[in-house]
Nucleic acid binder design. Structure first.
Lengths: 146, 146
DNA sequence: GGTGAAACTGTTCAATC
DNA sequence: GATTGAACAGTTTCACC
């Protein structure tokens, strides 16, 4: 696991914005040849600095009209891995994290509509020893950066 | 702007998880030839269903060690656009949304360390007519999907 | 939406600084 | 130890069916 240097950061910067850029294009942007870029990207993938590549999708256009932030309060102590295993099968969950604060975890959920959101919340609550949830509906996305 | 059909959804599903998959690979997964996949992806890009492609980066490996969810309570009514303009220049903000609930907005912030986080929170508070903020520190990411 | 052909890119190698 | 440049396999991208 070599250190991440300035060129690596530049490569990551380009690929964060243009994930399908060719190695030659990235090389032109950072001052390296295509094979040199490929070697670095392979190393960044091996080291886990770059986890993967993804299409950035407009949730609204895909029919996922509603988004909510759900604060989850658990009964007693639950291992983070237990929560992950319980929530992994729920496709409506965009992200989930354990947190330090009054809540134990925060889950970001995307659903088609309020009914679908309610069903998903019920599924989240039923998936583990959860005391209660507190949902915050997202109105409009102001800023969204990779 | 044609409708998004099931094949489009399947293509988006593959590219969400494997953003650098070849058109032939996507085609094999959805039952189409490579040129047919390209035509659909080009249309999805034109229609704004797919906004772009991005490398998924591990923030910790890049030296962004700490993440927080900041609930923002405003003084009186503030236009969403005013919040966006005020926060756009703050690079530590990963995402920001107005919400329906007790808070007016939720901001996701990434910083190098607690000191950097504190500085960023101060900057967020000073950028608009904000009454108070309530921060939740992220401990560990359980699930992270595109 | 599929097919085939031309141009380009990804990938690997030996050689080099 | 890392980069370059050449070479082949594979992919993108056309036109056309």
């Amino acid at each position: 696991m070599a250190a991440v240097d300035d060129i690596d950061r530049a490569i990551v910067g380009v690929l964060s914005r243009h994930g399908r850029a060719t190695y030659a294009e990235v090389g032109a942007a950072v001052g390296l040849s295509a094979p040199a870029v490929k070697r670095r990207v392979d190393r960044l993938l091996d080291d886990g600095v770059v986890v993967g590549f993804a299409a950035v999708v407009d949730p609204g256009a895909m029919g996922w009209g509603i988004e909510a932030l759900v604060h989850v309060y658990c009964q007693g102590r639950i291992a983070p891995s237990a929560l992950r295993d319980a929530w992994e099968p729920i496709p409506e969950i965009v992200s989930a994290s354990t947190v330090a604060g009054t809540a134990d975890a925060v889950v970001r959920v995307r659903a088609r509509d309020v009914q679908h959101l309610e069903d998903t919340l019920e599924r989240i609550r039923g998936s583990a020893a959860i005391e209660r949830t507190e949902s915050t509906i997202v109105l409009s996305r102001l800023i969204e950066r990779a």
